[in-house]
Design a protein around this nucleic acid. Structure first.
Ligand SMILES: [Mn+2]
Ligand SMILES: [Mn+2]
Ligand SMILES: [Mn+2]
Ligand SMILES: [Mn+2]
Lengths: 228, 228
DNA sequence: CTGTAAAGTTAGTACTATCTAACTTTGTTT
DNA sequence: AAACAAAGTTAGATAGTACTAACTTTACAG
């Protein structure tokens, strides 16, 4: 079993590698808020354990083993968030810091039970995909709302930003996952969007619309059981 | 926030002090399975933090602050066990190792929520009392079944031993908390008891009967709401 | 092609938590 | 009172994780 510290490094490496094509020690140290020498020495330990490909001065890349281990921690994190929201009544803006800790609990049974009680959810409360038991993670669903045109009717499927500030902002505006959003108009000047949903109307600045991942309404004849 | 290691030392000290009148470094090192020098050096750190009274070569005693901190960890442990059993369908023999980890989660909201969803339980799944929010812990309820006489009818309220082996033994025998047990007879030779409950009859060796804490049926007109 | 800034590394320190080996103190037994 | 065993302590080592300061390598701008 890896320490929580090691697990957080692995998660950060996975997350960074999904954002950029090449991940550096500077990226890692910034992401985790540690000094570059700290990141450097952890890098060496991960390399020794076969979790990271690494040569001096070269970019970092998780090995398949490292990637899998990281994804399984992400699985625990996201199952936990879903459990806290669905079964314990927490708001989506509250759960991340708790999951950040519970993801390090060593108990396959606990997370199996969460998964079962939740009906094997595919997405967490912020719309991010939950990796499967083998650590396979699908891509985020949806396109940015900012790319939609006037007249489009879309469903909010996920977020590019899950900071508590952003989530509280969405709470205030009554925007939740699954909201059906109609794009009433678009300000070509600055890219802001006039949208309507659940009887409300408002204007979203482009920067906000870029954080909202949506799909066209009735996107595919839906698989089978899984709802989000 | 104390580290999980420090928290485990505090809990061990509290637990030992409830078993014996004087607690030594040897007791502590045996309880936690660490060497005496390890315990010794931790002792010094706890003393510096004002959690432990300590003079060289003298027995150990938690300060009020140390006692309270320990009891609040026990509270988190026992609320977690209760949650796992009542809300997640775990068996009482499975929950201890999970609670041993979750007790270190730093999230007052998580444990408040558990407490609320459980209806502020007074006892954990093994019948041990759950300390209140101020760290006040009541004594274990009940007398040892081994002290009962033929003809007594009692209710199983708690256990002196919550090892998985013992819990699995009780599972096999169909003995659960709240079971109504009638003492059919007593072997004066070795102290074993013939008991009947839920349509079963069996003989309990004295050593087992000593681990079962019981009260006479209808022990007091019951407080008010709280059931166990 | 060279100078410089950014990135990366090394060295040295610190703190937690553990260990073993060796020593000291305490308390009990002869 | 001496001897001895148990308990406790100290010293010294190791591993993990962090830091700052100083140095080296890389990459890019001119
Ligand atoms: Mn999260
Ligand atoms: Mn974490
Ligand atoms: Mn327990
Ligand atoms: Mn613990």
């Amino acid at each position: 079993m890896a320490s929580p510290t090691v697990e957080n490094y692995l998660k950060a490496l996975l997350s960074l590698s999904r954002e950029r094509d090449t991940v550096t020690i500077s990226d890692l140290s910034a992401e985790l808020g540690v000094s570059k020498p700290s990141a450097n020495s952890m890098i060496k330990r991960l390399h020794e354990r076969g979790l990271l490909e690494y040569e001096r001065y070269r970019p970092l890349r998780l090995t398949p083993a490292g990637k899998k281990q990281a994804a399984l921690i992400v699985r625990k994190h996201r199952l936990t968030e879903m459990f806290l929201v669905q079964k314990m009544g927490f708001g989506w803006e509250e759960v991340h810091p708790i999951a950040e800790q519970i993801e390090h609990i060593d108990s396959p049974a606990l997370f199996e039970r969460m998964d079962q009680l939740l009906g094997s959810p595919d997405f967490d409360p912020h719309g991010s995909p939950i990796p499967d038991r083998n650590g396979n993670m699908s891509a985020k669903v949806g396109m940015r709302l900012s790319g939609c045109r006037a007249g489009d009717v879309v469903i909010l499927m996920g977020l590019e930003n899950s900071s508590p500030e952003f989530l509280n902002y969405l709470n205030e505006k009554g925007l939740r996952l699954d909201a059906v959003i109609k794009v009433e108009g678009r300000e070509e000047y600055d890219g802001s969007l006039h949208v309507a949903y659940r009887g409300r109307e408002l204007t979203l600045p482009r920067s906000t619309a870029e954080q909202l991942l949506v799909t066209r309404q009735f996107p595919a004849p839906a698989s089978d059981s899984a709802t989000r």
